[in-house]
């Protein structure tokens, strides 16, 4: 069987995680290509709905990457994002999807190395969980059609 390559949507705050990701690039630190970064002005801008839609549209996991506690460029957007992540996890539980598919992480702009470690660990964890519902269906559909 082909190994499952998870697709991760990473909402990255412009002021920290997005910069850390750029830094990982300039340090040429590799991480899995399944990590897809979407830039946001602050993790406080990450709408729970956008996370739901990401999972619905085919992401296997969503990472919300913001500034360290106390370092938010907008005072407390990261703390709000943290609470919202907990709220989203309740939804996930209700839907019956592993709540580990959504995580909030915090880092500073200089933490290129940590960025790589965090996203790689997250992706590895999602790999263990397997594909998200939409992707499961697509796969099962594909298998069916091949059988037919």
């Amino acid at each position: 069987m082909e190994e499952f390559d998870p697709v991760i949507v990473a909402y990255c705050c412009h002021y920290c995680a997005y910069t850390a990701a750029d830094m990982a690039g300039s340090m040429r630190l590799g991480y899995p290509p399944g990590i897809k970064i979407i830039r946001v002005p602050c993790t406080g801008k990450v709408d729970p709905l956008h996370v739901m839609r990401a999972l619905m549209d085919g992401a296997d996991g969503v990472l919300i990457a913001g500034c360290l506690k106390g370092d938010c460029h907008f005072k407390n957007g990261n703390i709000k994002a943290l609470k919202r992540t907990a709220y989203l996890k309740q939804w996930m539980d209700e839907i019956g999807i592993e709540s580990e598919r959504v995580e909030m992480v915090m880092m500073s702009a200089g933490m290129g190395k940590q960025f790589v470690r965090i996203v790689t660990d997250f992706l590895d964890n999602i790999r263990l969980l397997g594909p998200c519902p939409k992707n499961t269906n697509q796969q099962s559909n594909r298998i069916l059609s091949e059988l037919v």
Partner: peptide
């Protein structure tokens, strides 16, 4: 409006899980 959109996504995902 926000809750409608959230619930809509959640219900669709539940259905997807059921195939």
């Amino acid at each position: 409006r926000k809750e409608v959109a959230m619930l809509s996504s959640a219900l669709q995902m539940v259905s997807m899980k059921q195939g």
